[in-house]
Design a protein around this nucleic acid. Structure first.
Lengths: 203, 203
DNA sequence: TAAGTAAACTACACTGGGTAGTTTACTTTT
DNA sequence: AAAAGTAAACTACCCAGTGTAGTTTACTTA
């Protein structure tokens, strides 16, 4: 970290983003007034408007920024020298760790609620953020090419894996119905998922 | 249907519910003002308040009523004389039909958005509506008892099935990212799901 | 069949409170 | 001195909910 000096302006900007995030997570976007955000950020309302020309700009900037921040995974290529079990296990653990992080879940909750009734164009744009090639899909393709897996529809197979993970690790937590999975439970889930998936698709 | 005469009051009440449903689906609960609802229902605002003492009452009544309406499935017991494949297939087709209905999806979208930032107690109550024993779980239990399936954790296994179905038939549609699955695609999904599930759990 | 009645509906004005966004006058930081 | 901050007040709305006076409907009685 070379950067250490932050101008007051930058500090304020971060405070605003923090405050807004805080407000959104507590009350949702619709019920977070700019006054409320300014108060939580310990910043005057005018300052909010100096940094963001409107509430809408603030909202979309935060959501896209935070979602992008979360979406940065490392790559992991198929490695013929390792067993597919161990590779898939590692990959899913990584994916699940991300999916289970409170920060991730809260951001998606905020974004989903905001987008659920948003106009088509806004939803469209947001969707693009999520439609990137994932490490999992990339790995599956390579495993199929290496003839280690028998998959006719890779996209569908990827969806199956994600469905198996999300149904108990993500959706209930999104609705705050269940607590985030512990590491132990995450590992158990990955194990079960890998077992079922490979029993079906392994070449 | 013996009942045919409906009092004007009953007609108005239905109109209000229809209008509110309409408004909620278009704009979400938060952005549906009582004025808007009254206009859509072709009813005076005062009449809305004559039937429902507050907007909150209107909202919760509609959501719970509609969700309950959707949650009425028929039972289907395990039948030792039929193959488990055909029984599970039939069961999942039934479940999926419900899950894919536009009305169902729209109601859940409304309810989810409303509950996402609602206070704990409200969410708790809503959750109870969904935590009923499903026909699927019941059938799985019976199939295990009959030693046709090897499942150690039935709840988890049920979740797996639901995850496999919802990930492509429900969640994308909830976010209006994909259209409801056609009957043909529903059947294909059920087929794939049954195959994967039974390959893993069949005794 | 005609008049009467109670209940429900309507239009409309109004209260009280909240919100987005703007502006002003003044202060602090750079 | 310029740039960025602050508090506070102000505008122009929107919304939940109420009160009122007049109208319509469905049903009953004469």
């Amino acid at each position: 970290m070379v950067e250490k000096k932050k101008t007051r302006s930058e500090l304020k900007r971060e405070a605003i983003i923090d405050g807004a995030l805080n407000a959104f997570q507590q009350f949702g976007v619709a019920d977070s007034s700019v006054d409320k955000i300014a108060e939580l950020a310990q910043v005057s309302k005018r300052t909010v408007y100096n940094h963001f020309e409107s509430k809408e700009v603030l909202v979309t900037e935060i959501i896209t920024q935070e979602c992008l921040k979360n979406n940065v995974f490392g790559q992991q290529d198929f490695d013929a020298s390792k067993s597919i079990e161990s590779q898939l296990t590692a990959l899913l653990k990584q994916e699940l760790t991300l999916l289970c992080s409170e920060h991730m879940i809260e951001m998606i909750r905020v974004a989903m609620a905001h987008l659920m009734f948003a106009p088509e164009e806004v939803r469209q744009k947001a969707q693009e953020l999520f439609d990137q090639e994932t490490p999992l899909r990339r790995w599956l393709k390579q495993a199929v090419e290496a003839k280690k897996l028998n998959i006719d529809d890779i996209d569908f197979a990827e969806q199956q894996i994600k469905g198996l993970l999300k149904v108990s690790a993500f959706w209930p937590q999104l609705m705050r119905h269940k607590k985030p999975l512990s590491k132990a439970k995450q590992n158990h889930l990955v194990e079960k998922t890998v077992a079922m998936f490979l029993q079906f698709y392994k070449a």
